[in-house]
Every structure is written in C-alpha cells, then in structure tokens.
Nucleic acid binder design. Structure first.
Length: 1002
RNA sequence: GGCCGCGUGGUGGAAUGGUAUACACAAGGGACUUAAAAUCCCUCGCCCCGUACGGGGCUUGCGGGUUCGAAUCCCGCCGCGGCUACCA
C-alpha cells in the first residue's frame, strides 16, 4: 500500500510547514545571519514556468542546508506586480489591472507553495500594495530631496545646497528653481517613443527596429516633459564599488561597459568667422587629444544648439532639411541601418587651436547629441568613423601617429611594395593581373589607391634601399589618405610640431597640460551612462508624490511641491478608463477630481506620470526586513542585522538595469543614513536559462522542397499534418536514427535531421508548466514537487544553459522511489519500515560510503563560487545504489542520509524521517558531519603509467610511502614487460597523496 | 564589427594538470509475470586481432605548442551561443 506517492505526502507537509510557521524567521538571533534572496517574479497571467523554480530551488536548498548548520536564515518572497503587461492584459480583457494582478499573484503563490520552498510567508511583499508603494514614493522623495556634492562625493539634503549670492538676491523663486536644477530627481524635455497607431508612448524595450514590438507600427520620437534621476552623479561610485562585491566577472564587465567611463579632454575650437554676439567656441570631447594635429574637420550633432547660429545662408536649406530628417529617424535607423555615413556642410569653419588651421564644420547624425558635448573634432586618419565619413565626402586625411611595424606589415601597401623587386624594373606592371601560372604573388584585392601609391613607391624605391617597410612608413607619413586601413591604437607621434616623437600616453599628458595652460581645454571624464528616464505615461504604476504649482490664471509656474511623508501613500485613483489617452499625455490626466489639489490656498495639479516597473524592485530587499512597519521603510536595527544580502540569485537578463538601479537607490539611501552598507547585494549568482526539450528538425531546404510538393513524400505528409495543427515541423526522438554522428529520420532515411533545443515559447509550443510536471494531467500522473526540484538541480551546473527533459524527470522520480523502498516496506498495508532496516552496526564499506556521501554533499553545497548541486545528487544516487543491494540497512546510516537528502527533496525526507521514528520536522536537525578517517578505503587503486600511458593499476594501502610504491610498481609484471630493453630515466610520484606512478623511459 | 562564454559517448553531463566518459537518460538482452506495467540483474565511446577466455590501438571540434603527464595551460583555425553596437 504505501508506495511512494508524492501527491499524498507533499500537500500534507506543505500544510504542516505553513501551520507550524516552520520557516518564519525571528528578526534577531545570536546565530550567524544569512540573507538569501531570489529575484522576485513578475506574476504574469500564464503562471510559473520551469525557469522560475531553477533559481528558487537552488536558494531553497542552500537555506535549508544553512538552517541545519545553525544559521539564522532569511528567505523571503514577493511580487513585482506593477507594469505594462498587467495593464495591457487589463485593456484586452476589460478587467481592472488591480484585479488581474491579485489573481495572478494568488496563482503564483499557489504554484510556489506547491513546490515546498521554505519562504517566510509572513514577510511577503507586493509592490502594488499601497502599504508597500507608500515607501517607494517616500524613497523617491528622499531622492528628490537630495543633491550630489561632487567635492564630498556624496548625496546631501537639498537644504544644505550652497546658494550662490546672485541667485539668493534674485528672490525665493530663483532659489527654488536653482535647487530644482540640482536635485537627483529632476524634470527635463526628453524624446519619447510615440506610437500614433497604438495611441501610446512606448518604453525603449517595446520598440524594435523603429517599430512597435506589438503590431509593428511606426514609432516617432517626440519631446515630452519627463522625470529623470541623476544616476550619472553616482557613475564613479557605481563603477568603483564593483570591487566590493562578489559577482560573476561577466556581469561586472557588463555594468562597467554600460557605465562606459572614458578619460580624455575637452578642447575649445574657435569659430573662424564668429557671428556677432554668439559664443565663439565649439567645445568637443576627445579621448585622443594626442591626435589634435590630425583634426581636419569638425562635426556637430544635428541637434547641437550652435548649428542654426553658424550655418551660412548658402547651406541653410540643406542643413535644415538634414536636421528634420535626423529628427524623424529612430536611434536604430541612425545607426544600424546606416551603412553609409550621411552629413551636411554648415558653411562655417573653425580654428584648430594647436596649429591655427582652418577646418570645415559639418553636421552628421553619427555624432550623438547626448554624449560628450555633442560635437567632435574629426581625425579621419586615426578613427574608423571619421575615416569613413572623410572618404564619403572627400575630406582631408592627415596621419599623426606612426603605427608599429607589425601593423604596417599587414597593410595592402606593404604587401604590394614587397613585390616591387620581383618584377624587373619594379614598375607598375607588377600590379597588373598576373599571367596564368605566374609565380608572381599578388594580393587578392588591390584597391586603385594602392595601385596609385605604387607609382610613388617605385620613385623612392632606390632611396630606401629596396626596403618595403621603410617605403611603407614613408608612404604612411606622406600619403595616408591613400591607405585602405585605419590605425586607431597607440603609436609614436609625428606631424605634431614640438610633440613629435612622443608615445601616445605621454603625448596625452603633455597636451592636456598645454591646453590647460592656454585656457583652451582641460582633462575630462565622460560616461556612456545617461540619467535614468523615470516616468512612464501609463496608469499601472506608482503615482509621483509631486504637485505642480498653478498661477492665478491656472497656468503651471514650473515650480513643484513635494507631498509630505504623512500624505503618503498617494494612491492610484480608481479609474474605470485607464486606457492610453490617444495623446502622449498620461491616462491619469483623465482623473479630473484626483489631479486638482489645493494646499495653503494655492492651486496645484498632481503629477500624472507614473513610475517605471523598476521602481518597486529597486528596494524590495529592504522591505522584507520589516514588511509591516508603517512608520518607516525599515527599522535601522533590522537593516543593521540583516544587510547586506549574502546571496542573490536570478537571471542574467537583469545584469545591467535592475542591478544598477538598485545599487543607485541603495547608495542614495546610504548617503542619507538609512542603510549602513555601501552595496546591497554582496554575492550574486546567475542561473542559466532552461530551454525546451531537444527536438530534431529537417533542414530548411528539405522542408521547402516538401512544401513545393517535391522531395520526400513522408516529409510532405508530416508537413501537412504539422501545418494543420499549426505547429512547427519537428521529429520526436523515437523517430530518429543516428548514423555516422548525424541524425536521420526513421520514416525516410534520406532526410537528415539536426538536433536543437530552443528557448521555451508559446509560439513553439514547447513551454513546460510546473503544474503539469508536479500534478500531471488527465492522462499522466505527475511526478511531484520533490522530483521537479531534484531534476532542476540534476540537469547540470546551475549557471549553464540546458534543455528540459521529461525523461530526466522520470529518472529522478525513479531515484526517489528507490530511496523510498530502501526504507519503507512498499508492499505492506500500513506505513512500516522495510524488513532490511535494522538497528545493526553498518559494515565497513557502508560506513565508508555514508561518510564519503556526507563529505561530497557538504563540500558540493559549500563550493565556491557556485554550489554543485548536480554532483551532490549523483553522490546520493551512488549511496542509494549501494544500500538497496544490502540485506541489512542500518538505521544509523539511513537517518543521516535522509538529512542529506532533505534540502533537495524536503517532502519525502520529512516523511522518511518520521518513518524512521523521529518526531517533528527535520528542518532544524543538525547537519550530519563526516569523519575523514572513515572516508578512506582499506586499499586504494594506483594507476601506473609508462611515459604517460596507463599500463596497469596496483592495489595498495592508502598510507604507503613513495619509495615502496615505486618498488612495487617497478616489480609489476606488466610494467616490466613494457620496460623491456629500455632505460628508466625517472619515476614520478606526485607528492600529494601518491595518486599515481609515472615511469619515464628513454 | 567588438567583447565574453562554450565545444567530452546516441542524449544531459562528470573529471579544471595525474586512471577520460562518474551519475542519469535513451537503447539492447535477461529474470519475475497468464500478460503488461513496475521492479531487479547484465551490456552499452570507437576501431582492430581472437571461436571463446582475452589482448591491442585510438578518442574530449580541428591543427600546432608547453609538460614526465593536457579535456584541463598557451598559440592559430572552425563551429555554436550570449551580450553589445557610430559613446569620439
């Protein structure tokens, strides 16, 4: 009767844990603390998918392990529930997002609890709960109340901002405007993605290739008033403090690249003919001030404010048209699709400060208005982009950096020069197409320019003693514009006046000083990172706790007023019509009663933008520490106890945005004294993606053949069937015949197949639902939560991308069944132990295996940087394989084994723990320990190699000394045979543990 | 284009300088059974010699190198995946 039946066991223990609050965590304890955090999910309508429990299982195993090792473990879960998908789903179904969100949360909670995770459910948070977003708004107000003191490198209260005297004398409004301009949360006009067809503003991630992701409608860029957060003020600290955290190096690198720090200089170029009363200089940013002598033109971004002022009458029409075109293009069109550089001459000229040369000023959209100063000096000889532009518009190219020999030798010019001596006379004839069978070696492609250069080369050929390198060097100095390659790295300066001969790094130092002395430039650091666009023109998000002041006529004055803490939370108005307005203005504008406010006799309009989805997830790890506190976001004593997060596990898709935004908020809270650690997440692990089951696909050519009615008849039939069922055509594994390392279709062996595992997606029909794995459906039985958990961990290393396999789940299910039968009599009517379970002393081998298993599982769970769950499970399988073969299975080895299994498969472990006669839950039982002496076998196997090739294996006592081992090895018959007639030169026995013998013979 | 990662049996993977293929899946054979499922036992990288017992050789994408010894370290190439993309 009691066969292994997860359906009976699992819900019972889940109920037990909830009712007994087994995993409820006290706020404080004397035990060492450990805060283990999962990236909380967005509760979508489609429910959990098997990717979610991968990370959750890993953290759950570690939490259960650490609890048993006597640690004070915090392991909470919650919901990131504001955001676009809920709103769109609501619009489609006509159900209010608040309602669908709650339904989705209930479903997610049910599914997560069904998997037996040891979360402290008393600490559950929901970002859409006013009790939660009250504090999201409160943190926004802190950010709003903060300015960044660049000297102290710290965010400080706005009240401490020094006000310049001339501002103070201009009155209170001027002071307020000055303060507003310095806050970490500020307003600005920014281009947004406006989609007229959908009547809504789209986030950048909803725009693909200049079209809306949903529907493929065109998207325009329109300026709109936006809230921004001054994350750029923290760029340096966000970069530097990566040194404080233990994260995977690739994630750190992605953050570094995203921040994109570059050191360089700003340089001022005077206008050659400045229009009266206008600024006389154009400021550029460059990382290569050492190439100033090679600057042959300048480029302004089309949006640069000076463009209109400097453009000459003759060029005005062309420039205006170009600006209009550029404005219409999306970022994507400007970059990726633009294979050819575009631009227009303004008619104006600037003066290069280092040599007073007059150079033309162009506008081009390859220069971004949002980076640096929005203007560049172009050095076409040493920059790929400038080079392409100069070629396009026939602008001067002037070399000023001599590349190393190695580079010169790889140029096509050098390749051509080398041949000058091979043809008599070293003439241009050498570059004509070679005659058939000619031994003349010619580069495959030789541009007309190179051919022209060869004329010049042949004239100096004698002068440089037929040395192709010196000739190439000469040509590079004199006629760089004729080269096809661009050298952009460091080298030795030339054509640079008194700086000639300097290596690039030294030149950079000297020229910076030179520019500073003359007041025409200065060292400067720039970042790719832009300020964070923090507002969305949507309904389903946190409202901003901000009021816009109106004047007597009801017009906005441009001044804002923050709500006070006691006015929070500012709840979303309960609107029936939350659809986008059809104009760029946010839907909250339609809540007429809500937006009008009077305070102290003044009239105000509420801010109608809402916060982006990132806001709630930026600080949830703090709220878990004190989830019901209505007085503060988190009691500092609790924050002090728990922070920082000791382990944070989630997908790599959050490598940049979520993690960077959280770190930024945390640093502001740190500066303002609300948290005591500079970083929120001490250690981070990314779990790898889980793909759909491996499938076998016929080649596209074969399928196309079949579609046209040709090719394989079988394939044609299969194609018709797949098309009718509206699925992709693939072949099940049963139908695949492997041959010569390739796969063929059993039903038609002429059809070759390729194996492929794809991302799970509805469209491919390969999504695996945890409900199905655990509970099955009408046709199948389901394997239970323990099997799902175990398989997710057994598939491979946590961080690896790996394909799902239902057969693999079946495999671990069989393992758990075997564990069950190892302990429980599955043929008895009532729950009783198997007959082989006895209070006997274990034999030596069984005891050894138990201790080896304890050692292996413990060490695998402790492994750095990432625990090895898969090999820990394999060790437990080996233990089980051994013990199920034994006639006598001592209780004294079964109990510790059940404890080892419990973090991985907690339900079956609890049940077996009870069967073995223990009371209550095993969740806080001490973790088993191993005796190193007992892990060793009586004899060990030592491989013997001759010249690195395995010849035999010896059985020896584990404590044998090297000399005896060597003697034994040399005495072995097989070894003697392979040493026949050869001289033993050396015998190698590695010092650590006598693991092998290698006899070197000559 | 740039940067990063990966490449081991039919499949997922193990071994991170010391016995390559642990553990599992799939496949095949056998036992039990009226039968099936379940369970248990056996075989299972490739090639060669041998009737058999057994023996020998090769093998970690390809080519080279370092080392007594390389899946592991180094160089070059090929393939796959991810991120990123005019940031001056």
């Amino acid at each position: 009767m009691p066969t292994y039946n997860p359906k009976a066991i699992e819900p019972r223990w889940q109920r037990y844990w909830l009712e007994h609050k087994t995993f409820s965590t006290p706020d404080f304890s004397d035990k060492p603390k450990r805060y283990v955090l999962d990236m909380f999910p967005y509760p979508s309508g489609s429910g959990l998918h098997v990717g979610h429990p991968e990370g959750y299982t890993a953290t759950d195993i570690l939490c259960r392990f650490h609890r048993m090792r006597g640690q004070h473990v915090l392991h909470p879960m919650g919901w990131d529930a504001f955001g676009l998908p809920a709103e769109q789903y609501a619009i489609q179904t006509g159900t209010h997002p608040a309602e669908t969100t709650q339904n989705n949360i209930a479903n997610f909670r049910r599914q997560i609890q069904m998997l037996g995770f040891s979360y402290d459910w008393d600490r559950e948070v929901d970002t859409t709960d006013p009790g939660y977003y009250k504090w999201t708004q409160w943190i926004f107000l802190q950010i709003f109340d903060t300015w960044y003191d660049a000297d102290q490198k710290k965010g400080r209260p706005i009240a401490e901002l020094p006000i310049p005297p001339e501002v103070r004398t201009a009155g209170e409004d001027a002071v307020r405007r000055y303060q507003d301009s310095k806050r970490l949360a500020y307003q600005a006009e920014m281009a947004v993605n406006w989609c007229p067809a959908l009547g809504t503003v789209l986030a950048n991630e909803e725009v693909q290739d200049g079209k809306s992701e949903r529907g493929g409608h065109p998207v325009e860029r329109r300026p709109l008033r936006q809230w921004l957060l001054r994350i750029t003020a923290y760029a340096e600290r966000l970069l530097a403090d990566l040194a404080l955290v233990d994260w995977p190096e690739p994630i750190k690198k992605m953050q570094r690249d995203w921040i994109g720090r570059s050191e360089g200089a700003e340089v001022d170029f005077k206008l050659a003919n400045p229009p009266a009363s206008e600024s006389e200089t154009i400021r550029v940013f460059t990382t290569r001030p050492d190439t100033l002598f090679g600057a042959t033109y300048m480029v302004l971004a089309p949006e640069h404010p000076l463009v209109a002022k400097i453009t000459t009458t003759a060029q005005r029409d062309a420039v205006t048209k170009y600006q209009a075109d550029a404005a219409r293009k999306s970022d994507m069109e400007r970059t990726e699709l633009a294979k050819k550089k575009t631009g227009v001459f303004t008619g104006a000229f600037a003066i290069n400060p280092v040599n007073n040369q007059k150079i033309p000023i162009w506008i081009a959209d390859y220069v971004l208005s949002t980076y640096g100063t929005g203007a560049i000096m172009a050095v076409p000889a040493h920059d790929e982009r400038d080079f392409a532009f100069a070629r396009q518009f026939h602008l001067a190219i002037r070399t000023v950096v001599m590349p190393p020999t190695k580079w010169l030798e790889e140029t096509s010019v050098f390749a051509a020069c080398k041949n000058l001596d091979k043809e008599p006379g070293g003439s241009l004839e050498g570059v004509a197409p070679p005659a058939a069978g000619s031994s003349f070696e010619q580069p495959q492609t030789m541009s007309e320019r190179t051919i022209r250069l060869l004329g010049k080369a042949s004239r100096v050929w004698e002068k440089f003693h037929h040395d192709p390198l010196r000739v190439t060097e000469f040509l590079y100095r004199e006629s760089a514009d004729q080269f096809d390659e661009v050298y952009t790295d460091d080298g030795i300066a030339f054509n640079s006046g008194s700086f000639d001969g300097l290596p690039t790094p030294e030149f950079k130092q000297k020229i910076a000083a030179w520019l500073e002395e003359r007041g025409v430039g200065a060292r400067k650091i720039n970042y790719k990172l832009r300020d964070w666009l923090f507002s969305r023109q949507r309904y389903w998000g946190e409202p901003f706790p901000i009021l816009h002041e109106l004047d007597d006529k009801g017009q906005p004055t441009g001044l804002v007023r923050a709500l006070t803490a006691d006015e929070l939370p500012l709840t979303l108005p309960d609107m029936q019509d939350y659809r986008p307005s059809g104009r760029p203005e946010p839907p909250l504008g339609k809540a007429r009663d809500w937006i009008h406010v009077t305070r102290d006799g003044k009239r105000y309009l509420r801010e109608t933008n809402t916060m982006p989805q990132w806001a709630g997830s930026c600080w949830y790890y703090l709220r878990y520490l004190d989830p019901h506190n209505n007085e503060m976001l988190c009691d500092p004593a609790k924050a002090k106890h728990w922070l920082p997060v000791d382990l944070y596990v989630g997908g790599a898709e959050h490598a940049v945005l979520h993690l960077l935004y959280s770190r930024f908020w945390h640093k502001v809270l740190f500066d303002r004294g609300h948290v005591h650690t500079p970083e929120p997440f001490y250690k981070l692990i990314n779990q790898g993606m889980i793909l759909g089951e491996t499938r076998y696909y016929p080649s596209n050519d074969d399928v196309e053949d079949a579609m046209r009615g040709g090719g394989s008849k079988e394939l044609r039939t299969a194609y018709t069937v797949a098309k009718a069922a509206n699925t992709e055509l693939f072949v099940a594994e049963d139908d695949v015949a492997p041959r010569d390392g390739k796969y063929f279709w059993k039903r038609d062996p002429s059809v070759q197949l390729t194996a492929r595992a794809d991302k799970m997606s509805k469209a491919r029909g390969n999504v695996i639902n945890p409900d199905f794995v655990v509970n099955g459906d009408e046709k199948t039985n389901g394997y239970g939560a323990d099997s799902l958990r175990l398989f997710e961990m057994f598939m491979g290393p946590l961080e690896a991308v790996k394909p799902w396999s239902m057969a693999g789940v079946e495999g671990v299910y069989r393992f758990l069944s075997r564990v069950w039968r190892m302990i429980v009599d599955d043929r008895a009517e009532t729950m009783q132990l198997a007959a082989a379970v006895k209070d006997a002393e274990p034999d030596r081998e069984t005891l050894r295996l138990l201790h080896r298993t304890i050692q292996k599982v413990t060490e695998d769970l402790e492994a750095q940087p990432i625990p090895r769950f898969n090999t820990a499970i394999a060790a437990m399988m080996e233990f089980t394989n051994h013990l199920t073969r034994q006639e006598v299975r001592p209780r004294s080895v079964l109990s510790p084994f059940v404890l080892l299994l419990s973090p991985f498969a907690p339900h079956i472990a609890e049940e077996l723990w009870h069967a073995l006669g223990h009371k209550d839950t095993l969740a806080y039982e001490p973790w088993p320990t191993f005796d190193p002496a007992l892990t060793k076998a009586e004899e060990m196997e030592v491989p013997v190699q001759v010249n690195g090739k395995l010849r035999t294996r010896l059985m020896v006592p584990p404590d044998i000394d090297s000399a005896s081992l060597e003697k034994l090895a040399l005495a072995d018959e097989k070894v003697k045979a392979s040493l026949e007639g050869k001289q033993v030169r050396k015998v190698i026995i590695p010092p650590k543990g006598n693991k092998l013998v290698n006899i070197v013979v000559g």
